[in-house]
Write a protein that binds this DNA or RNA. Structure first.
Lengths: 137, 137, 137, 137
DNA sequence: GTGGTCTAGACCACC
DNA sequence: GTGGTCTAGACCACG
């Protein structure tokens, strides 16, 4: 259920888990009330330190994404809207897109190919979402 | 010529400089053969340590963006053919695209808006390039 | 495991470490997945500064020789296909060969002796590889 | 007569000139009594600083390779044997060969190709020598 | 003046 | 414990 983490992305491992849970919640892979794997099980599955798994859950609880019921486990809470304003979010994403465009230039990848690559990847992402939704039903 | 860096963003200062130079190079603000500010001057202007500035230039050189001639200075290289395989380059860019797509999801930005944002930014980038090319002639 | 460095050779200390790790990796003394000494341990053993050791490992990572997992340590990577184009790789090696040939000339070593030396060293390298492979089985 | 220098080889520019003059002397391109270009001419031809050219000649004079006659110019002196013992020279070259072999491994270049490349480059070097000798006669 | 290297010591995030 | 980053200050080789 939880995808492997990328150790060399620069993004902290515990944050990657946080983002995954958020994404799973957003895409419908996980729904309100669903149980998450135990800290112990998660740590074993991802081959990470238990402290790291615990920190991820701790952060998720602080953010109000999950709820831990002692003795029972962790469960997904209903998620509200993003706290950030729309314009802020768009701007943030725009900056990342700019960086990718610059990178494409240095990798000598033409605009056409960049567009193709973009739609391909977006389509692949959508299908992963759909597949997750399928298994859920 | 170099914009101030953000010390609290979590992104390493030297990487911020790398990205700025890359962007300036890609958009044509900097051209092949142009001299970059000296390590000392850059450090003073950005109020950072000389080593940090040197590290940024060093990274840019290993990426093949600039050429550094000890005792003379750093200069933007004319980019010839990339030494990397085509498939490797596509894969690298694809990975970055995936990251942006996931990020869009976390920011609760719909696919359609992501697409729009992408084409907008790409178009803006092209126009900046065209404008810089204009001033050259 | 790591031999002492020569402070007076003019060759940067961090590069000496890079070359040692490369040689150990190529000859099979170090194998994929093996852990390298920690930055702190290496610095202490070689009586160098921690930053210098870190710089060596950083260079090795950008070359794709090792993988560094912050908080965990540095590990030798299994080398997959090189990301570089074939022609680029040949050209780089050719440049190094040219340098050696010129150097032979300066050292007043005749072509025949250079050839002999070359085959001898290559044969010795192969045998070291074979020996290391032996101990693995 | 003097080949361009490589600014990014790590080898000091003035040393590259020294080595070139030595090599030219060894290969017969320059002979005892021949005049070298003036400091001024050399600096212009190689697009280097006059100080650098002067330093190269100064080093050559200190080593006894050339002789400067004030007002007349610099002239090549008869060169004696290398001051280093044979075994030392062989060992030094062997170390460089080892480094190249290791590098070939990391560039994923097979032994056969390495050998081919080596003989090709050596042959090319010989032909350059022969051509120089030709023009001299 | 230029960049390259090294030392020393500090703080941070992560396992 | 691990590596990553930054500062501060020094020395060197080179142009």
């Amino acid at each position: 259920m939880i995808a492997p983490v990328n150790f060399k992305s620069g993004v902290p491992v515990y944050l990657q888990i946080v983002q995954q849970v958020k994404a799973a919640s957003a895409s419908g892979t996980l729904r309100a009330g669903d149980a998450l794997p135990s800290v112990r099980a998660l740590a074993e599955e991802l081959r990470i330190n238990r402290n790291t798994a615990a920190r991820a859950y701790s952060a998720l609880e602080t953010e109000g994404i999950i709820e831990t019921r002692p003795g029972a486990g962790c469960f997904l809470k209903a998620q509200g809207a993003s706290p950030l304003r729309k314009t802020v979010r768009s701007e943030r994403l725009g900056a990342e897109l700019d960086a990718v465009i610059v990178q494409a230039h240095h990798l000598q990848i033409a605009d056409d190919e960049l567009k193709t690559l973009f739609t391909e990847r977006l389509e692949a992402f959508r299908q992963r979402q759909a597949a997750n939704h399928e298994t859920q039903v």
